[in-house]
């Protein structure tokens, strides 16, 4: 399998705190890659640096064999990295359908003149945006909620909507920040199925998750962060027995 994403010595500093210490990871095309670690280990910081929301303080990122500039979040989205947020960030006053339609922004063209004149090409594009959004809502299983405002949806549906919106940007890599947080067991199972389907559809998945059972069952490979540094990487079973990982989670005897 070829490499999709490679980070080399990625670092981030908040004042005197090194939140990310030379993190080097390699994510392969088509795998489900888990990123775990105790609270405050730097998992979400890694996401925020990777998607351009925080400026990096060192290191490089290669995506799809190209160096990736991380200075503008929208460029990262255009390059093909989409994400969800740990504390769901939907457009609350827009309908579920509109939320997903916003996700198509990166892959469509219409500008102000197009919007006003609405000639044939623009109408076709708008119809395609709507059709794709409908498709994605069906894919994540909330098509029945299409016309409800996003913040009226149930918690689980909001998580699904966020995934649909991220998928609307046609990502090569989908980064999910704790998608199972707050879900019950059956919702978590359904989410795992959804992630499997995504991978089957050709999307590579990077997953931050606290639910160890979900990570171990789902991921092909896992990296463990602790105090901003990578302490282990490998197949879930290997990582589970790695003494450094056990120490990070449980402390020393």
């Amino acid at each position: 399998m070829s490499t999709l994403l490679e980070t080399r010595n990625l670092s981030k500093r908040f004042g005197g705190v090194l939140a990310l210490k030379d993190v080097s990871l390699t994510i392969l095309q088509g795998e489900i890659y888990g990123l775990i670690g105790p609270n405050g280990a730097g998992k979400t910081t890694f996401f925020n640096v990777l998607t351009g929301l925080y400026p990096k303080d060192g290191g490089e990122v290669f995506f799809d064999d190209q160096p990736l500039r991380l200075t503008h979040p929208h460029e990262v989205a255009l390059a093909g990295i989409a994400r969800t947020f740990q504390n769901i960030r939907l457009f609350g006053q827009m309908t579920a359908m509109e939320n997903v339609m916003v996700g198509r922004h990166a892959r469509t063209q219409a500008g102000i003149m197009g919007a006003i004149l609405r000639h044939r090409l623009q109408r076709a594009e708008e119809a395609a945006i709507r059709a794709r959004a409908q498709e994605l809502l069906e894919f994540v299983g909330i098509a029945a909620q299409a016309n409800r405002l996003a913040h009226h949806l149930s918690y689980g549906d909001q998580r699904r909507l966020e995934i649909a919106r991220a998928l609307a940007t046609d990502p090569k890599l989908l980064a999910l920040d704790e998608p199972a947080a707050g879900m019950n067991e059956s919702e978590t199972r359904a989410l795992a199925d959804l992630i499997q389907q995504l991978r089957a559809g050709g999307v590579t998945v990077l997953l931050i998750e606290h639910d160890v059972k979900l990570v171990m069952g789902l991921c092909d490979r896992v990296a463990v962060l602790d105090y901003g540094g990578k302490i282990a990487e490998g197949a879930p079973t290997e990582v589970r027995h790695n003494p450094a990982v056990i120490e990070a989670y449980l402390g020393t005897a």
Binding site: P73, R83, F85, R89, L90, G92, G103, H105, R107, T169
Partner: peptide, 12 residues
């Protein structure tokens, strides 16, 4: 509604 999420959706 949410500027950060808008950026993450590829909006300049």
């Amino acid at each position: 509604e949410d500027e950060m999420a808008a950026k993450a959706c590829g909006i300049h």
